[in-house]
Design a binder for these strands. Structure first.
Lengths: 218, 218
DNA sequence: CTTTTATATAAGTAATACATACTTACATGA
DNA sequence: TCATGTAAGTATGTATTACTTATATAAAAG
């Protein structure tokens, strides 16, 4: 009954005055341990092959806590993805602020997306390989963040059409799907086979094709 | 012990003389029943939520036969996908035969791919959503067929670069990823949300962007 | 007629995701 | 100082899962 009170003191109540948010909800240590355990495990295994017993063992917490904090195994996956997505989309929105012109904005959008996929393979694995097969995902909170991301691109395309820099004979949503698809497929082999890639070159290539097409110019 | 001998007679050994292939390996009726059961179930559920008990129940065969014929549950999925892929790639290779010029071939390639994804949603669901998350897939026989499909496109692109109809300042493999990605992402929303789409329009749009880019021409 | 081989089945098993009942820690307010 | 409410954590249990094994049958082969 007294051997475990050492571990409980490693997270003192220091989040009072220095926090940017005034009322910080204290996140339980077990919760962050579980999240980190999944992030670690998903590096080399697919989500389905990872067991809840394994997650709790690596996290060093009781298995039932997964269900306390995340309701079910899939909820944990979605929570992890949400974290990534929120950071990514927030940064992207900020990065786009100073840029003028739809074409330039799209270039930035492509560049940032490729780099984010490339820099964090755990994020890309979850986003591109592990959530879409589960129908419930598209009713989840997490998917709403993806819609914000896709909506961002759609607005830029519409702006470009209005200002005359983007062709108006193809539906904006089609152009968007086109761009999102090529971004993802550009990164996919590297993610699946664990290659290192040069995000700058990839973004340049992709934008070249996107803005000029693949036909040889005369 | 005698109530089930009725079902056993519904597949007589008629595949002897009329077959195009001289030596046709007789496929056991239970095998095709299992395949059909999975095809039926995967229409509304993700592969993971489908149980082997469910498959065998719908197929009307014993559960152990899944393992006799396909080794494991994933093997069944791969076998089903292989069937589709073989048919698709064979047809595609045939369809490309009469066409001259890399650009025209790519147009056909895009058109055929979109239509195949669109016409059989079971195939597209498996191919785009259910196999890639499993690492073992990329060592499977099934994936080799996909490589033939992707190799086909790569050859066309290289032919186009050699003949001067496709730009030579971007790696062929990059162009290929670009095209494959846009094809898939074009179809993805329809597959996920069950929309009906117009494959002709989609192929036209995609080729337009592909060959001319999204910038407005002056 | 016997042996072999492929097809089928019933009855398991270990492991899985998840549930339940319970305890401990801690904050708040009288 | 005590009572109360709430969140964090745990031990143990359970139905279901993918997969296995031993055995039966029926047709083909010898």
């Amino acid at each position: 009954m007294k051997k475990d009170n050492v571990e409980k003191m490693n997270e003192p109540s220091k989040n009072k005055s220095l926090d940017p948010t005034p009322v910080k909800v204290s996140v339980p240590p077990s919760r962050v341990k579980i999240v980190q355990a999944l992030k670690l495990l998903i590096r080399d295994k697919d989500f389905n092959s990872i067991t809840t017993a394994e997650i709790s063992r690596v996290a060093g917490v009781n298995e039932a806590l997964i269900y306390r904090h995340f309701n079910d195994k899939r909820g944990l996956l979605h929570a992890v993805l949400s974290e990534y997505l929120n950071e990514f989309v927030s940064n992207l929105m900020f990065d786009l602020k100073g840029i003028k012109g739809a074409i330039n904005k799209i270039r930035k959008f492509v560049w940032a997306s490729i780099h984010y996929y490339n820099d964090d393979r755990v994020f890309s694995k979850i986003q591109l390989l592990e959530v879409r097969n589960f129908p419930g995902y598209f009713e989840s909170e997490t998917y709403q963040i993806v819609k914000r991301y896709a909506g961002l691109l759609l607005e830029i395309i519409e702006e470009g059409i209005t200002s005359g820099s983007i062709r108006d004979d193809i539906a904006p949503s089609s152009i968007r799907q086109f761009i999102l698809g090529s971004i993802e497929h550009y990164c996919l082999p590297a993610i699946i086979f664990g290659h290192a890639i040069d995000g700058d070159v990839m973004a340049d290539n992709l934008c070249e094709i996107l803005f000029e097409g693949i036909k040889k110019k005369n």
